[in-house]
């Protein structure tokens, strides 16, 4: 098994490095979006969150 030729597209080290940096950046952007939506929701509601019928 160990001597078997790899199948499919084999990435070079440089391609792997760039793919990893893209993945990290995308993860950070998605995380930032979560924070952004949370913060915007809080500020859009403001004091109105308490202004509702009981």
């Amino acid at each position: 098994m160990a001597d078997e030729e790899p199948r499919g597209v084999v990435l070079t080290d440089e391609q792997k490095r760039r793919r990893r940096s893209r993945s990290v950046a995308l993860g950070l952007v998605l995380g930032a979006l979560v924070v952004l939506f949370y913060v915007v929701t809080v500020f859009k509601m403001g004091g109105n969150v308490a202004n509702r019928p009981l």
Binding site: V9, L11, E14, Q15, R18, R19, S21, R22, A25
Partner: peptide, 11 residues
């Protein structure tokens, strides 16, 4: 297209 060569700086 082959595997992407794009880095974050390209985007």
């Amino acid at each position: 297209p082959g595997p992407s060569l794009a880095g974050v700086e390209d985007y």
